[in-house]
C-alpha cells in the first residue's frame, strides 16, 4: 500500500514539473513580427561583456523609412554533398546555384527592394564540409579577423541594413566580426537573418549589438533552418515586408 501511494505521489510530482516546464515553441524558425520584446537568455548574465544598449526594439523606428536599404550577406556554399537536398548549404535557382544566405537575400530584395552586398574575404574558405568546419572552428579559436575584399562605397545612403549569415559554432562567422568592426552603423537599423543547422541565432544578435552599440539591432530576426532554405523564399519576403512596416 505504501509503495502504491508513493508511486502516485511520484507521478503527481512528475506531472506538475512537466507542466511547469513545457513551452509550445520548438527550436529553429523564429516566428516573424511578434510584438512582445525578447527576454535575453539567462546565460547572458554570466557574460564578461555587457550589452551596449539598454533595449533593442523589435519594430522599425519611424525615421528609418527615409533612407535606402542594404542587404548584406555572407556565406560559403559548399561544393560537396548532394545539391539542394536537406542540409546542403546552397540552392539551385533559375540563375544558377547560390548560397543559402544569398538565396534569402535575393528573396528579401524581391519583397522590399534595396542593394545587395556580398560580404567577401580575401582568403578562400575550404569548399568541402569537414575542412570548412575545421577551418571555421580554428578561426573562432584564434579570434581571427579575416581581411574583407570589396567595400561598401556609399554607406551614408543606407538607413536599414539587412544582415545575413550562417550560424557557425553558435557564433557569427569571423568575417562578420571584421565587417562589424570595419563599418560604423551608428544611427542605422540592422535587421539580422540567419541560416542554421539547429541552433537558430544562438547569441549572435547580442553580439551584433555589442559590436554596434549605436545602431538599432532588431531582435525579431529571420531564422531559417538550412534544410528549409529552398522553400523559404515566401516566408522571407513576408517577414521582410512586415518588419519594415
Amino acid at each position: 500500500m505504501k509503495k502504491k501511494l508513493s508511486l502516485i505521489v511520484a507521478l503527481v510530482l512528475m506531472l506538475s514539473l512537466a507542466a511547469c516546464g513545457s513551452r509550445s515553441n520548438s527550436p529553429g524558425n523564429t516566428p516573424p513580427a511578434a510584438n512582445a520584446p525578447d527576454t535575453p537568455p539567462a546565460g547572458s548574465a554570466a557574460d564578461p561583456e555587457p550589452s551596449g544598449s539598454a533595449g533593442t526594439p523589435d519594430t522599425l523606428p519611424a525615421a528609418a523609412g527615409d533612407g535606402g536599404i542594404l542587404i548584406a550577406y555572407f556565406g560559403v556554399p559548399e561544393t560537396d554533398g548532394t545539391d539542394t537536398v536537406a542540409n546542403a548549404s546552397r540552392v539551385a535557382t533559375e540563375g544558377g546555384v547560390v548560397g543559402n544566405c544569398q538565396f534569402i537575400a535575393q528573396a528579401i530584395r524581391q519583397a522590399v527592394g534595396g542593394d545587395l552586398f556580398a560580404i567577401e574575404t580575401v582568403q578562400e574558405y575550404p569548399g568541402t564540409h569537414q575542412p570548412l568546419l575545421d577551418f571555421a572552428y580554428e578561426e573562432l579559436r584564434q579570434n581571427a579577423r579575416p581581411e574583407l575584399s570589396g567595400e561598401i562605397e556609399n554607406l551614408d545612403d543606407y538607413a536599414v541594413i539587412f544582415l545575413g549569415y550562417p550560424n557557425w559554432n553558435a557564433d557569427l562567422p569571423m568575417p562578420l566580426y571584421t565587417f562589424l568592426e570595419t563599418y560604423d552603423f551608428s544611427g542605422k537599423t540592422i535587421i539580422p537573418f540567419v541560416t542554421h543547422g539547429g541552433s537558430g541565432f544562438s547569441r549572435t544578435i547580442s553580439t551584433i549589438q555589442e559590436l554596434q552599440p549605436n545602431a538599432a539591432v532588431l531582435t525579431d530576426g529571420l531564422s531559417i533552418s538550412r534544410g528549409s532554405v529552398p522553400n523559404a523564399a515566401q516566408e522571407a519576403m513576408d517577414w521582410a515586408s512586415e518588419i519594415l512596416g
Binding site: G21, R23, S26, A170, G198
Partner: peptide, 19 residues
C-alpha cells in the same frame, strides 16, 4: 545524428539544469 546541440531559447534556461 545531430552534430550540434539544439537549444530551445523559449524554454526557461534554469530548467536546463533540472532536465
Amino acid at each position: 545524428r545531430s552534430e550540434f546541440i539544439q537549444f530551445d531559447f523559449d524554454r526557461p534556461a534554469a530548467l536546463y539544469f533540472w532536465d
